[in-house]
Design a binder for these strands. Structure first.
Lengths: 340, 340
DNA sequence: TTGTAGGCGTTATCAC
DNA sequence: GTGATAACGCCTACAA
């Protein structure tokens, strides 16, 4: 009776097929090592009993979980959601399952999540950016757990990564802004502490100012957590300065949408009174009016390539490369050409 | 040598603390059953060796994984991301880890994901809606895996759920629209097959027409996958009809934003030429101009309560209740009051 | 090609 | 309060 209700094991299948457990195991894991005839018999027993390998036992015996952990700052930003979706799809195609956690942009939470995923036997880890306590990397190395960073391309670090150059991308956008005749430039950045993507974008903008004979130190920068409201608030305070900027460049599209809204709330029109730029090219950027000039980042491709690279590392086909993806400028209505 | 590099086990801790493995295990799992003195000794050995329990072994011995699986249609819609975030936070607080998968709104993919999560030993499952092959529920019941549905409140099904009444919510919004004097009403719905939330919203609108002496059958309805572009396309085709609707009610905010954009692309102004309504109340709804009239759904609360309810089921403190959350109307600029 | 048997690291049930 | 010890279900040399 109770036998009927309980979940079948390898033993049950073996008995039903009249073979040993080893043969059943082989049928499932390396079918080519079993002759067709017995394999058929075994498989039909598997089918009939509805057998599924016990996860814990498999993990323990094989010493791997076929699980990949990913820790992202937040699920609430579409860019991470989109990349993660592609990451998951690609993992799935390769027989891995995704374990996600979010850190809310807080290093301590991220460390806790890392330990938690490792404790759960993650075979590899995807993290965002490089900027974290080196002890974390030591810990992961001692556990021999491959780590891959996404969202960054900083080859000097030597850490495996699939990403783009935040600094150079922002430089390119800023150069375009300057070419359009803007000189009074302000920035609304995300919090840069512990966030090398945000920091890189600020540096890229400063680089561009410097390269064009403008004073990087003179540029007003407001750092604020990503969020529409925060962008609106920041814009308001920037526009209350004596010398109003002609353009406000934002660390991401969410801030930019907020800035746009903030401007409109003040009765300013974009881009006549002030231009606004973003970063990421989320759907939102094309939905608002005017559409936002931004840097397009290939999020899905990044997710997909990260999955491929990380699985290669886990399966020891690679020790971790540094892959660069290209970002592209999207010049849209929110940026005014002052020459035109 | 190799001993140094390898991950410490219970045995190592036991030896270091001069106790048995059973005592170490107890210290970790039910510390109150161990006297303070030895507990201290054990804990410091744990600390010192950097011991973490082996997940597979623990799962196998305890016969549970402390893992909850969730299958959502897509991570790319902010509503699921937000609810999932809250769900995860609450699970984490209760010592559970979240395993997520997405189905892309396709029943076959969902079934595959369900089996995959079960195979990985999920202690419980969160699904969206009730509408799926009964065989799925039989399967889960035979495995004794608790399932909770979110996003729906349909007490007649008897299935455990934490959600809201999609039909009644849409009815309320439609009543308001009718009270505002609208009579020529059209709808842009998500695909209703296999999606009881979308289907419920269509029914709610039809109910309202009926209740107000209008003909539900006469209402134009376009079904299309959720997406901004699809919303825009659908609006265009609705507005090409002989008798243009005065209001287009959409199955969610993403479609509504698309409809808004579609109208604007046609040179129509909202709400002067046509009103638009949405559903969900995502951030987007307040960012576009005009802001979208919609139904606010407490996504975070739903995620949190679902976590609490599901853990209670897993830990056998409950057999699964049906919890209703309240939605509220948000009347904003995209809906014109024709009486005014 | 197939079977035997040891081991994986915990938890939990007994005695002590 | 603590210590042996038997599962837990699978994988994988090694043997046949």
């Amino acid at each position: 009776m109770s036998q009927l209700r309980s979940v079948p094991t390898l033993d049950d299948v073996a008995r039903a097929a009249g073979v040993s457990t080893a043969t059943v195991s082989r049928c499932l894991n390396s079918p080519e090592r079993v002759v067709e005839d017995t394999r058929k018999r075994v498989m039909s027993a598997v089918e009939h009993l509805g057998y599924t390998p016990n996860f814990g036992a498999r993990v323990m015996a094989a010493r791997r979980t076929f699980t990949i952990g990913a820790i992202i700052p937040t699920m609430e930003n579409a860019i991470f959601a989109r990349a993660l979706q592609a990451f998951q799809e690609e993992l799935h195609a390769r027989g891995y399952t995704l374990l996600v956690a979010s850190s809310a942009y807080q290093p301590e939470i991220e460390e806790e999540q890392i330990r938690s995923l490792v404790a759960r036997g993650a075979d590899g880890l995807l993290l965002i950016g490089h900027d974290r306590d080196p002890a974390v990397y030591d810990y992961l190395k001692s556990r021999e757990i491959p780590v891959l960073s996404a969202w960054v391309y900083l080859p000097d670090t030597g850490q495996p990564a699939v990403g783009f150059d935040n600094r150079r991308s922002m430089f390119a956008l800023a150069q375009q802004v300057i070419d359009f005749g803007h000189r009074r430039i302000a920035m609304i950045s995300g919090i840069t502490k512990g966030n090398d993507r945000a920091a890189g974008r600020v540096l890229g903008l400063r680089d561009a100012l410097q390269a064009n004979g403008l004073d990087p130190e003179a540029m007003p920068v407001i750092e604020t957590p990503y969020g529409v409201e925060n962008g609106a608030d920041a814009l308001r305070s920037l526009m209350q300065a004596d010398a109003r900027p002609t353009v406000v460049m934002c660390g991401n599209d969410v801030l930019a949408v907020g800035a746009l809204r903030g401007a409109q709330d003040m009765g300013l029109s974009v881009p006549q009174d002030v231009s606004v730029t973003g970063f990421d090219d989320i759907e939102l950027a094309r939905i608002v009016t005017p559409q936002i000039t931004t840097v397009h980042v290939p999020h899905r491709e990044m997710g997909r390539k990260a999955a491929i690279a990380l699985v290669d590392m886990v399966e020891k086909r690679s020790t971790g490369d540094v892959v660069e993806l290209k970002s592209t400028l999207k010049i849209r209505g929110s940026l005014r050409d002052l020459n035109g």
